[in-house]
Structure formats: structure tokens, C-alpha cells
Write a protein that binds this DNA or RNA. Sequence first.
DNA 1: CTAACATTTTTCCAACTGGTCAAAAATCCG
DNA 2: CGGATTTTTGACCAGTTGGAAAAATGTTAG
Lengths: 245, 245
Amino acid sequence: MAPKKLKSVAQDAAPAQRTGAAAAKPTKQTPAKPRPLTRIQREKQDMILEAALEVFSMHGFRGATIDQIAEVAGMSKPNLLYYFPSKEEIHRRLMSALLVTWLAPLEEMRADGDPFVEIRSYIRRKLEMARDFPRESRLFANEMLRGAPHIIDMIAVDLKALVDEKAEILLGWMDEGKLSRTDPYHLIFSIWATTQHYADFDVQVRAVLGKGRDGEGRFEDAARYLEHLFLFGLTPKTKVGKDAD
Amino acid sequence: MAPKKLKSVAQDAAPAQRTGAAAAKPTKQTPAKPRPLTRIQREKQDMILEAALEVFSMHGFRGATIDQIAEVAGMSKPNLLYYFPSKEEIHRRLMSALLVTWLAPLEEMRADGDPFVEIRSYIRRKLEMARDFPRESRLFANEMLRGAPHIIDMIAVDLKALVDEKAEILLGWMDEGKLSRTDPYHLIFSIWATTQHYADFDVQVRAVLGKGRDGEGRFEDAARYLEHLFLFGLTPKTKVGKDAD
DNA sequence: CTAACATTTTTCCAACTGGTCAAAAATCCG
DNA sequence: CGGATTTTTGACCAGTTGGAAAAATGTTAG
């Protein structure tokens, strides 16, 4: 229930070395002595990334400004730029951390589990993410809307591989008659779409549902509905006799 | 199949009267003599709106620039500003036209039709819109992601009213036992989510599905899958015996 | 042709943008 | 303490942004 903090994003990228052209070595990677990176540095970087998440997720990359991010992070623009070399770099860091987080729930789907249990808990995990990390969801959506310029590669490689793998599992279940036969890819798409909708289109959901039944109640309604939609939609005809509530 | 042009958006807003403070009357509306608006003016305005749709739908309001819109529209920035007083106004026009278009498919859902036929064709209409008007879908999504600052009122009033009405219809069908009993609001949300996903997350869908099966095939797969998902998920237990396909 | 009008282009501007830099201020550490 | 280092700040810059003015160029009716 309590939104556990996402794994800290910071890892290296020491403050911009300003001493001469020291760090200017265009060796692409500069792993020569990553310099431990003090606790304060990590904290500040996290504050910046947190603020950047807030701003990027609302306005997209181009619509966000460094000043705005700096203000939300509670520091001056030059100070922020002391910790990150550029706006792009902040975004990059945010995106690569996000991708890991975003793929995790699907990775957990196990071939040796019960199909319905696996799918149900996958849906629930995704729905929880939409509830607990709406900004991450919007950040992702913003990137997608723009054609995913910064992550298209990872999408086309890592994500595709993962989905291929899970689609195979789903197909296996269908072959065994444990699952109604449909397109496993579009099945996954529909889980993504329906769950993330509650984060990305939150305003609309709120406005349409009105005041009553907010927060947790809303979430439970959505969870119950989606469960109904997917499970009964996927129940193979042979097992249909089951009369659940 | 051929994406029929959306209704022309232009309606009034004559070229910015520059003669003195003529049009400066801050009376909010300036309907005093709308001036017929020549064919050429309407064409130019449409070109601008078309270009603006292209740009706004990719970069969001803040991320889009007038220069960019002007370039896409094939004219200079001041020339564009001759037809529209400001960037905001262009966006406003685009949004209000969009809302009408966006609500239309749901309005067609009739209480006196067959539930499954009605829902099926609603899904198909929405899916066709995602295919034929992806930019409109993304424009809408972009606005939602930012909290819908420009259309929250219409969402909370007109859209809500429409959804309330249709939810009532769905509830009626459920009462009559023609539809499995679930939350009608979340049902509508899930239709929106699953169909618009194909426009908004097109890059991802493409990347995951890979080269093969693009365009029409893709669309048909999605349509077939969604039909399966929703219809079987909504089939009341009493009618379940039907062994399709 | 020409006056009245519609359209387009050129020039300009103030505010904002991402980003730099040197100096000041904090902090660390022996 | 005092020097070295890290962090923060203020001034600054070149390019971009939304937009205004006005001059220049059509266009059209009489």
C-alpha cells in the first residue's frame, strides 16, 4: 500500500569536473576511477532526479525547463548543472532507470505458475505501479508519444525480447488448454493499456467518476473490474461452468 | 479504410484586425459581425491547424513552437500569426474541435440496440479512430498527461454527462441479464485505454511486434483480439454455452 | 488605373532558453 | 586553526521563443 521508493537512480556521473580539460577525454566512457561519490552528492542527484521526474512527466522533454526543475529541486540552475552536465543527461538517467522498473513486473510472470494466478497478479502489479508511480508512468507515456527517440533501441531489443519470451509462455498455456486462444502480444498490450490508463489519464478518470469513491476505493474498483474483464475473457470454454461471484 | 477528413475546424476568428485597438475589446467574445471569412482564409487556417496538430501531438503544448508549426504549414511565423492571434488560440481551437470528434463514437451507442453489437461497434469505431487519426489521439493524450488544463471543464461536464448516460444504459443491460455485471465506468475506461493505446503507443507496438504484419494486418489482429477480450469477458454465465470459432 | 483592402515579408524586441565561468561561501580534514 | 576541496552563487552569453509594427506586396472592384 505504501509506495515504496523506487530504487535510487544515482550510480556514477561525478559532479562535472571543472578543473581544466580533465574530464574532457572523449573516451566515451570515463571509468578511470569513478570516485566513490559522497552521500551528499548522491542525495542531491536524487533530489534533482526527483524534481526532473515531476517536471518531465508533466511537460515532456522539450516542454520542461532546467530552471523549473531546479526550482522544484530547491536549488539554483547553475547549482543543478554542477551535478548534471545537461538537461539531456538528466533525462537519460531518468529513462534508463525507468525502463528497468517498468519491465520488472512482466519479468516476474513465471511459466510454471498457474496461468490465471500469474496473469491476475501481473495485472495487479501493473495497476499498483500506476497507482504508486504515476509520474513514472507519465514520463514513459510522454516518451512514447514523441516516438520514444531516447529509448527506441531498448524498446526494440530488450522489451521486445522480454515480450517475445512471455508471449511464448502464454502460447504454451493456450496450447495446454489452460487459456483461451488469442493473440498473446495484444493481450499484453491490453494489460499495459488498461492499467497505465489510470496513471496517464488520471484527470479524466477523476473527472468522470466525480468526487465520491476516490483513492483506495477507486483503485479497488479498477482492480476488480479488470480482473473480471481479463479472467472471464480468457476462460477457456471447457472450464466455463465455474460460477464465481 | 480511407481516413475520411475530420470535419473542418475553422469557424470564425477572422484574421487579427490590426486596425487600431479595434479588436482589442476585452469582451471575451467578439461576435460583433463575424465577417463571412473567405474560402482562402478558411483554407489557410486549416493548413495551420493541420500543421499545429502535427506538432502539438508530438511535442505537447509547451514543447511545440510557432516557428515549427509555421514551417510545417509552409509559411512564415508572422504570416501564421496573421491568421491566429497566439499559440494558445491555435491550441484552443484544436482542442475544442477534437473534443467533439472524440465524443462522437460513444454518443452513437444506442440503448435500444443489442448490447454486444453496440459494444462491439463502439470498440471498432474507437479502434478505427486510433488508426485513422493517431495525431488527434496523441494530442488528447498529451493534454491529459499535463492535467488537461485547457479542457478540464468540458471533461468534467460534457464528457462526464455523456459517460453517465451511457453507463446508465450499460447498467440497464446488465439488469436485464444481457451483460455480465461489472462496473460500467471502468468498462468504458478500458475501451478507451485499449483502443487509444494503438495510437499513443504506436512506436512501442511496432517495435514489439517487429516488421512483419504491419498496417492493416496489425489492425485486424488488434480488432479480433479486443473483440475476443471484451465479448467473452462480458458474456453472462447463462449464455456461456455458445461454442464459437 | 487606382483606391481600398487583404496578405505577406522584413525587422525588431523583450523574455526565456540551456549553459558557462569565476568568484564567493561552505565544508572537510589534518 | 588553516589550507584544500567541494558546493553555491551571481553575472553573463548566445540562441530561441512568442509576438508586435510596419512596410511591402498582392488583389479586386469601380
